[in-house]
């Protein structure tokens, strides 16, 4: 059951006055995630836009302990915190979260993440995926989707489709994996609660599609709307893998049926990074979405859930 807004905890762990751009999706996600996790949370944070969330020079709007660390090492840092908690026998009461961008996850940090996942280090790994290196000025990452313009794919847009991190993490046999989007904070809240309940069961991986007005080129008041469109088109299925079993989350359930999926052009046309798209480019996206659901459908069928 989706939690009602009135039942959400009032306590805020990120106070107003962060240094994020207005309309920053990562900040929406961060705020709701910490609401779900509560005060007994230690965050590890690699170089990324979220480092800036934490403030500069001793000012911080974040109310839980955060350790800032190098770009590629967040999973190892979180493993270290979690080992220390185990040594001190505080690992039951305190939850450790690695909070990284797509660059820190898909690219430079993938080795450390894979290592931590395989050895069952105990923490929640969050990738807020804004689909580029935003902090350094919107350069392409391996999470950048096909065709998107970034400052390193400046004229024709990215020629390759993004890496499938969801499948990569599934291949590690994790206890809990989920996808979220900034347009569905209640869904996100529930999933973080669940990930916390899996404390003690190795790495739990949550990936959040995180809107970014300067990086994606949408209006600052569309940060919620834009990822809703992504979900409605079927491009970004909200789902979970619980102890190996695939579960499509409520907001995405109806898009198992292709005819219910909305035109992905609605999503793409909200963003200037896709402004140059031709019919052929739209087709690549449509095929990408079809293939994605075909595979999910096979699996649901095999599980007897279709």
């Amino acid at each position: 059951m989706v939690i009602k807004v009135k039942d959400l905890p009032e306590e805020e762990y990120i106070l107003p006055g962060t240094r994020m751009c207005s309309g920053c999706g990562l900040q929406i996600a961060y705020r709701w995630a910490l609401k779900a996790l509560g005060p007994n949370t230690i965050v590890c944070n690699p170089a990324s836009c979220s480092t800036v969330t934490g403030g500069v020079g001793g000012y911080t709007p974040i109310k839980v302990p955060v350790m800032y660390n190098c770009f590629e090492t967040v999973a190892a840092h979180a493993s270290g915190v979690s080992a220390a908690l185990a040594a001190k026998k505080k690992d039951k009461e305190i939850v450790v979260v690695a909070w990284a961008g797509d660059g820190g996850t898909y690219d430079i940090g993938i080795q450390g993440l894979s290592g931590a996942a395989e050895r069952r280090s105990n923490f929640i790994y969050v990738c807020y995926n804004n689909q580029a290196y935003m902090n350094t000025g919107i350069q392409r990452s391996s999470a950048t989707p096909f065709g998107a313009k970034t400052t390193t794919t400046p004229i024709i847009g990215k020629a390759q489709v993004n890496k499938n991190m969801f499948k990569i993490m599934r291949a590690h046999g994790l206890s809990y994996i989920a996808t979220c989007a900034t347009g569905y904070p209640q869904d996100l809240f529930e999933k973080f609660k669940k990930a916390r309940e899996f404390n003690g069961k190795g790495v739990r991986y949550i990936e959040i599609l995180s809107s970014c007005p300067p990086g994606w080129g949408h209006k600052v008041n569309e940060s919620v709307e834009v990822t809703k469109k992504a979900v409605e088109s079927g491009y970004w299925p909200l789902m979970e893998v619980i102890e190996g079993k695939l579960v499509i989350s409520n907001p995405s359930k109806k898009y198992i049926d292709k005819s219910k999926r909305k035109d992905v052009r609605k999503y793409l046309k909200m963003q200037s990074r896709f402004k140059h798209f031709t019919e052929d480019d739209f087709k690549v996206w449509e095929e990408y979405i079809d293939d994605l659901w075909k595979e999910l459908g096979w699996e649901l069928e095999k599980q007897g859930d279709l």
Binding site: C44, M67, A76, S79, G80, A84, G112, E118
Partner: peptide
Amino acid sequence: QFVCVESEQSAISAVIAASATGC
């Protein structure tokens, strides 16, 4: 706790973090 890491970069990262957690 022995953290059996996958690289030296992770080894030193893990001990830095554990040290910052008071160990």
